Simulated scan of single mutants.
Amino acid sequence: MRGLIRVGLAGVVVFGAVMTASPAHATPGHGVTAEVVWQWTVKDTDYVLREITIRPGGTTGWHRHPGLVFANVRAGTLTHRMSDCATVRRYRTGESLMEAPEEPRAHLGENRGSEPVVLDVVYASPKGVPLSADAPDPGC
């Protein structure tokens, strides 16, 4: 199974950031579409491959994931902001990312470019749990 994920995707997506103690509200994403390519369950883990497209100016909204997330940027440049308000990374076509479930920080994915960002994303999450959960806006 691990070999299939490694071979199927070149890497891993991790979007993370620290939540603040001040009250805040979740931020909805916009300009994002996601299509399930395949999914299966093995014992207590759901494996899902999704193609995610972020239009220019689009954002995922602040969120975190309950399981491992692996992603490969197929097209465009993904800007990844973390809720510590200091960490910003850019992932270009052909680059990969990973997010571990023990990462306490929330994150936001954005398309600041002029062409769509297309991601191939594999989620390995606890069975029956949503792939992501909204997180408060840290005020960055």
Rank of each mutant, 00 (worst) to 15 (best):
R2E: 11
V7P: 00
V12G: 13
V12W: 09
V13W: 01
F15Q: 02
G16R: 04
M19Q: 15
M19F: 09
S22V: 15
A24N: 06
H25N: 15
A26H: 10
T27W: 05
T27V: 14
P28M: 10
T33N: 06
T33I: 09
V36T: 09
V37L: 14
W38M: 13
T41V: 15
T41N: 14
T45C: 12
D46N: 15
Y47D: 04
V48I: 11
L49Y: 07
R50D: 06
I52N: 02
I54M: 14
P56I: 02
G58P: 04
G58E: 01
P66W: 00
G67F: 05
L68H: 14
V69R: 04
F70S: 01
F70T: 04
N72S: 13
N72W: 01
R74H: 12
R74S: 02
G76P: 03
T77P: 08
H80M: 10
S83M: 07
T87V: 08
V88S: 04
R92P: 04
T93A: 01
E95M: 07
L97W: 07
L97R: 02
M98C: 11
A100T: 12
P101F: 05
L108C: 03
E115G: 12
V117M: 00
V117F: 00
L119A: 08
V122K: 01
V122I: 13
A124Q: 04
G128N: 15
P130A: 02
S132I: 08
P136Y: 02
P136G: 13
